[in-house]
Design a protein around this nucleic acid. Structure first.
Lengths: 332, 332
DNA sequence: TTGTATGCGTTATCAG
DNA sequence: CTGATAACGCATACAA
């Protein structure tokens, strides 16, 4: 309730001195400083940051645009992001888009109207995406996939997928099913390329029937797995494009009496916390979610503050984690 | 870049008219309205919300204080929260406290300095908590437990726990282990009371040795379960105070050759998404996370807007969900 | 219905 | 080192 003027009056100095005492104490005499601090304590002065932000034309907030915060990979990422933001004095506005463009626009509008200083984009924006973020607003893309323009933090999805499928092939698998995300999702596209790369280098022909489409939810994984159960010549291994679909698929396979990994190997992607605790534990690719979050925030703040970027794109390494859901193909 | 003044100049009206055209169009003639809109389009005017917020002494943002956003129950809650906030034109500032009081204070300070209009508190604040939120700042407690002061959204933890343990008893279990949260956590306290209630009404004596303390993480559940494996007279059922610890415990039990539910039943709490997909699927208590999120936001906004509260505390119903992790006790 | 003028709390400029 | 004062962009009381 009390403003800088009250403090000035009580302290017997000008408002300018109070302001200086707060933002550059070294420019103020020890005597004034003391009087100001005493006055601040006396009237319980809390600076009005709304006014400060208005004056400095900065909100000191960034929005994070995320497809679904309930996805454990994203929540891990965001946790790291928030941590870094807080360290640097920035707030993070949660922008859960739930896949709708309308909500996304709403958040973009927030930075256009100065309520946020920049955006961290976790939604993989396909090239045909209509509402691209205006070029003049600070933004870093951290969706992890290729085909993004502007500053980005990402992993090499294609190479990671190839590593995984190479491994399955090394175990003797030749018919390797895929549970993919939606067809036009950039993650799907990149990882599918990696899958094809691996097949190609092993001389295995690509079979379209081995691709089951999901949408990255457990439920979709559960459904997709039926496609494999019912095949006359079913795959001996399945490469799922994320852990959640793999976990859903395991449910189906086990219910159908297919043993994992004896009858069928299955792999995931992301290494969410549950991958280690499901039964059997899941062979997967670990993304450095926290590292990505930190770096994305650092990069965005650099852009906002107008500092030069040492690199406009940063590709982080993934880790290949072998657990119990994969085994050599059965000799039958 | 262009301000309301530019619009006024181009439109040939006063700034007041432009302002009114935006916030109360009904008070402006159709003619002026049209000129204003044309001018807005012409100069691509975007109102400076920083100025508007400053002027109206409101930030139109609320902070949500959460112990750990990576916990799936919380992320579900927050998703609903954000949804509602966006509908009402509010932003949500993510405040992941990670259990530290310092970070919590930082966020409380944010509303004291006008950067947020209120707080939704998900952290269960024990009575001895040092940094309670000042009474004059709008706040609703949504941690779900009793012993909170001020407006609150919660469930009846005690009754829910009793329901669960009653069920185990009805299956013939008499030695029922507990994997609890930290001892002084209000959730732990409430749910333990429910456990004791159930024992009491069944005439079973409470045995302190059957309580294993965890901290609501999967890892702690995994460890806690060892306590039961090594007992000479081990429990035939385990009531875990959340799903994650239950899932961790299942890992240990299965590794020790204890079959679930044949040799030991196990139950959880929260009904996170994975509870349905783990093996065996988990009998648990479902909390209406989304409903709670919505209600908490509604209640907070009412407080912020100064509207009267119809009720200061709201207890939401839980749902008891029986899956495959529980079975009648073995006759041996 | 419209315009003029004032003030919101702070920072920054410029004299002293 | 300090003080007076002008912005910042918008909303609104008041007058027309």
């Amino acid at each position: 309730m009390s403003s800088i003027r009250d403090v000035a009056r009580i302290a017997g100095v000008s408002v300018a001195t109070v302001s200086r005492a707060l933002s550059m104490p070294e420019k103020v005499s020890a005597e004034s400083l003391e009087k100001v601090h005493a006055a601040i304590a006396q009237v319980d002065y809390k600076p009005n940051m709304l006014a400060r932000n208005f004056r400095s034309a900065r909100s000191y907030a960034v929005v994070v645009l995320v497809p679904d915060i309930a996805n454990p990979f994203y929540s891990l990422f965001i946790r790291a992001l928030e941590d870094r933001a807080q360290q640097k004095g920035y707030a993070v506005l949660l922008g859960d888009t739930r896949g709708t463009h309308e909500r996304e626009l709403e958040y973009i509008r927030r930075v256009e109207t100065r309520l946020a200083d920049g955006i961290i984009q976790l939604r993989p924006s396909s090239e045909k995406s209509l509402n691209n973020i205006p070029a003049d607003i600070p933004c870093v893309n951290a969706c992890g996939c290729e085909y993004t323009t502007g500053p980005a933090i990402r992993i090499d999805n294609r190479a990671a997928a190839k590593t995984m499928v190479d491994y399955l092939i090394s175990l003797g698998h030749k018919r390797i099913g895929v549970i993919s995300g939606l067809k036009d999702n950039p993650h799907t596209v990149d990882r599918l390329e990696g899958y094809k790369d691996a097949l190609r280098s092993a001389g295995i022909e690509f079979d379209r029937d081995l691709i089951a489409e999901g949408d990255f939810t457990m439920w979709s994984g559960l459904n997709a797995a039926f496609q494999f159960c019912n095949m006359k010549n079913r795959p001996t291994a399945v490469f799922s494009m994320n852990d959640e679909m793999a976990i859903g698929a395991m449910q189906t396979l086990k219910a159908q009496g297919i043993r994992i990994p004896e009858d069928m190997s299955i792999t995931g992607f992301d290494d969410i916390a549950y991958a280690k605790y499901c039964d059997p534990s899941l062979t997967t690719i670990s993304q450095p979610a926290e590292e990505m979050g930190k770096m994305a925030m650092d990069m965005l703040l650099r852009i906002i503050e107008g500092e030069p970027l040492s690199q406009t794109e940063c590709v982080l390494p993934t880790e290949f984690i072998i657990r119990k859901s994969t085994a050599p193909v059965k000799i039958s």
